[in-house]
Design a protein around this nucleic acid. Structure first.
Length: 199
DNA sequence: GACAAGATTGACT
DNA sequence: GTCAATCTTGTCC
């Protein structure tokens, strides 16, 4: 799917550079929304852990398209994972949204995640937040900056303090510190990565 | 056509 | 902490 000719300069950069800038923005689906507090960067041929490492396939084609689109895939045959496509056009890249701080539509989130133990647990994981917001494969490829779109990204100010650390759940290139989270925010999916140096 | 692996979660010990 | 659930995708023959 090719999106409308809207420029998204803050996403037109390497995934590892765009990822921390997405912290603090809001992901909105219908009446449900959450503030992005944890992300991971996935790049192209130079990132063995990325779906785009071995070139384009029917599944990952959105990663090779223009920035600002949503890449949704199914993991372990059960859960959905949502990514925000970034990178310079032609160079694949995406930022996995790993955790949200619920803002609006919390009742609806509980309806779709009745087994959550607490409000913090509603969106504290990539599969959890997709279930809570209602994101599915039907949303793969949608443009996030379309005011009338089914899934929207509302750009916000990134936090002052961002913690970084290794990505979760991968076996390749597991040493790269490409996971980013808002420091001290309790809505993250796992224990906080290393905070930045004081100062 | 067959097979192994996977950017996870939830239940159980 | 350990482990099963569940099935699509990509690779190889």
């Amino acid at each position: 799917m090719i999106g409308p000719p809207v420029e998204v300069p803050w996403l037109s950069r390497r995934a590892v550079d765009a990822a921390p800038l997405l912290l603090g923005s809001t992901l909105q689906v219908g009446r449900r929304s959450g503030r992005i507090v944890e992300v991971e960067a996935y790049e192209g041929a130079d990132d063995p852990a990325s779906h785009a490492a071995r070139g384009g396939t029917p599944r990952n084609q959105v990663m090779f398209g223009p920035p600002g689109h949503l890449y949704v895939y199914r993991i372990y045959g059960m859960h959905w994972c949502a990514n925000i496509v970034c990178g310079i056009d032609g160079q694949p890249g995406a930022v996995l949204v790993r955790a949200l701080e619920p803002l609006e539509g919390v009742d609806g989130m509980w309806a779709d995640r009745p087994k959550a133990r607490s409000e913090v647990d509603l969106c504290s994981g990539p599969g959890k937040l997709c279930a809570a917001l209602g994101v599915t494969g039907d949303h793969d490829g949608v443009f996030l900056l379309d005011a009338d779109g089914p899934v929207r990204l509302l750009v916000g100010r990134p936090p002052d303090r961002v913690a970084s650390g290794p990505r979760i759940g991968i076996t390749k290139a597991a040493d790269r510190p490409w996971r980013f989270a808002e420091a001290a925010n309790p809505h993250v999916s796992r224990p906080h990565p290393k905070p930045p140096p004081a100062g």
